[in-house]
């Protein structure tokens, strides 16, 4: 399938290289996210249908989903989403300022957001590390390792932070790329579906 956002060609070779590397990680993350969606659909359905028709719910489903799969699916592909233009913003400013200023604002916004994500990543990584070192477990249907639940916040936000820094810096260097990166609210972009 064709994704207009992925056609963005980054100006300097070093950015192209960085983007390609990051994009590989993001595609892997998206694959994990898609697997998560499929797993939720199948496990929750199997639990409900098994419970109703065979009196045999999937006992571990509730804990597996709420400890791991939900968090993983919610966070792992945040960066991939941004690369696909999956962010909503108020477009008012675009009509007021010129292309150059628009690009600068776009870049600054991304860099500020990157700081927020970096803070979250650092503290969440500390929690995950702590759980790993202490070998913390949730006591449930089985013993569930806590670090595996905690790892998705630093992974997702860390990857997102890298993406925001890369795109932010790139747009500051070459403001006209803001137009391409900001396509998500362009009314003339066809929706992928159908």
């Amino acid at each position: 399938m064709h994704h207009p956002e992925e056609d963005v060609v980054y100006p300097a070779p070093v950015f192209r290289l960085l983007d390609a590397g990051l994009l590989r990680l993001e595609h892997a993350a998206a694959a994990v996210g898609v697997l998560g969606l499929a797993a939720i659909m199948l496990l929750v359905s199997a639990d409900a249908l098994g419970r109703y028709f065979f009196n045999a719910p999937v006992q571990f489903q509730y804990e597996l989903t709420s400890h791991y799969i939900m968090g993983m699916t919610s966070l792992v592909a945040l960066s991939w989403g941004v690369r696909r233009g999956a962010h909503i913003r108020i477009g008012f400013i675009d009509q007021v300022v010129g292309e150059r200023l628009r690009g600068i604002l776009f870049g600054i916004n991304f860099l500020i957001a990157a700081v927020t994500m970096a803070v979250i990543c650092v503290y969440a990584a500390g929690e995950a590390w702590h759980a790993w070192v202490n070998a913390d477990l949730f006591f449930g249907v089985v013993d569930w390792p806590v670090w595996l639940a905690r790892i998705w916040v630093p992974l997702g936000c860390g990857l997102l932070c890298l993406r925001l820094v890369l795109d932010g810096v790139m747009v500051l260097i070459d403001p006209q790329h803001a137009r391409v990166l900001g396509t998500s609210t362009d009314p003339d972009t066809e929706v992928d579906a159908v």
Binding site: R51, N55, P57, Q61, E63, F139, G140, V141
Partner: peptide
């Protein structure tokens, strides 16, 4: 969950998490 499930299952009831 946990120990409650074991007591329910001992009598053949089905524990459900929600």
């Amino acid at each position: 969950g946990g120990a409650m499930n074991l007591t329910l299952e001992s009598l053949g009831a089905t524990p459900v998490a929600m």
